[in-house]
Design a protein around this nucleic acid. Structure first.
Lengths: 150, 150
DNA sequence: GTTAATGCAAACGGTTTGCAGGGGT
DNA sequence: ACCCCTGCAAACCGTTTGCATTAAC
């Protein structure tokens, strides 16, 4: 396999990760990894498949799903469940929230470092043991606002 | 006795709503409406179907879906899209948020009256025009906490 | 050589839709 | 009598799974 030709920082990074996890470094896993690392958006499995299809026409959509799930388990990506949308994949695995444009569907990351349980109304503490907070802000992004002004 | 009075009240309520909306008051719509009004949880279409099936064995699941969508359009219920869960239906159509138990999956309403755009970090305002805020708190509810202590 | 991962196809589960017949107005 | 609504069945769509083949180790 021509993996050697594709050799980059990414290859070594992924090789180490696969070693540690005891899984094989396959051509497909490398290509999906490279694709993920080269974009800064929040692609769906289908979009990743489309983008890779040009260079790698034989890669199957179920391999994308399986690989993304593997990467999710390795902590390499995080699945984003956004209402009314298919599952998206986020390479930003730090704690953050999302702004979703109701028009173009693009997703932007929101950082809210001092948002914790004490920010919430008291009644929530009385409901049980909080494990995670999931915040979605829906609205029209600046790009779409400007376009509609034209 | 009281049950009859309750259903009459609901009947008139729904009759008026259907009149205003210009849609027919069918047996199925009434029964789904009564079921929704008699519970205080957040049922899925399938659960409503199961509950109604005892009394009304011929009612079809697709009628449940169609009716709930109609009720959603009328503003009678709100669809809840909660991550990893099927669509739930909420008879509480006022602005509120949700606590979801990761163990029993039960959903509790969170009221946070002074949560508005000014509560959010400044960066969000810079992203576009905010239309809605969607907050999910995931954790273990008190019931499940107590059960696991036993 | 051994085992895990892939590609293919088919299944899955929740939801939606086309249609013909039934029920509300 | 009109035509909206329902029940039935089948389609839908994103995702998952079983299986035989292929490739990484």
């Amino acid at each position: 396999m021509e993996i050697e030709q594709l050799s980059t920082q990414h290859l070594n990074q992924l090789r180490q990760l696969c070693n540690e996890a005891g899984i094989k470094l396959t051509h497909q896993r490398l290509e999906i990894f490279r694709e993920l690392m080269s974009v800064n958006d929040h692609p769906s499995a289908e979009l990743i498949h489309k983008r890779l299809h040009k260079k790698h026409p034989t890669i199957a959509i179920d391999t994308i799903y399986r690989t993304l799930s593997t990467f999710d388990e390795l902590g390499l990506v995080k699945k984003l469940y956004i209402m009314n949308e298919r599952t998206l994949f986020d390479t930003n695995v730090t704690t953050h929230h999302h702004f979703i444009c109701t028009h173009c569907k693009k997703v932007k990351d929101i950082y809210w470092s001092d948002f914790d349980n004490s920010t919430l109304p008291e009644m929530v503490d009385g409901m049980g043991k909080i494990e995670s907070r999931h915040l979605e802000i829906h609205g029209v992004c600046n790009d779409c606002l400007h376009k509609s002004e034209e």
